[in-house]
Amino acid sequence: MKHAGILGLAAGCALLTATALGVQSQVDRAAVRLKTGAVDADKPKVAIANDADAPYCTPAFKTVLERVLHACGLTGTDARRGCQPADVKSLAQISDDDFNALFTPLKSRGAVILFDDGSEKLDDAGRKVIEDLWTDRRGARYFFVVARASKTGTPDFNRALSHKRANSVLFLLSDKFKEPDLDKQVGLLWLGNEFAQLGKDYCDWNVSRGKQKCSAEAINRSAFVSWVDCQL
């Protein structure tokens, strides 16, 4: 064909022009989408990492938990840790039975550490239970220690004793695990003998000295310990 060269050249120019225009227009369109975020809406929502939120975290449970955490210095910048029984009474604003009932769902997550009469010393069984429990943290944000004393003795003595028992647990955790932000993880309550005494049915829980040595009086010479798997 006579004009093959011209036709080839024309075809080449057409292809080059089409390619150039195509590239330019596609890049321009992408730039517009980039500026306007045109397809942002199609992005799937991604969850944010958070603490576990177990079914027992009912609104009532969370209300008490939140008040206790706040007042006991586990939230915010307040350095205070621990609450006295009077504080707890005013914070919880519920009866002793209802207060204890809130912790009932923690049976599979918690344990009761028994102490000798008038003593705050942890025995080996108590230490083991606490250490085991601490390492089984999973997604829990807070570790609660609720120490009590039996009715024997004066309220002041028992208040001080239950405070020492709570601290015994805390010191063990501090010595053993050396976690720097323990202050913001462990909530201490010392209830003395005035508030929310435990019934003998708590002997069915994971008790450090076993069921045999657990009595109605012994169960209150104790520290209840548990992780709390609730989001606040």
Binding site: M1, K2, A4, G8, A11, G12, L15, T19, V23
Partner: peptide, 21 residues
């Protein structure tokens, strides 16, 4: 894309040109 575009045009030229290419 650019190179294949060139070769397409060049091959067309050879195809149409036959032995005159």
């Amino acid at each position: 894309v650019g190179a294949f575009g060139f070769f397409a045009a060049f091959a067309l030229y050879l195809l149409l040109g036959g032995r005159s290419a």
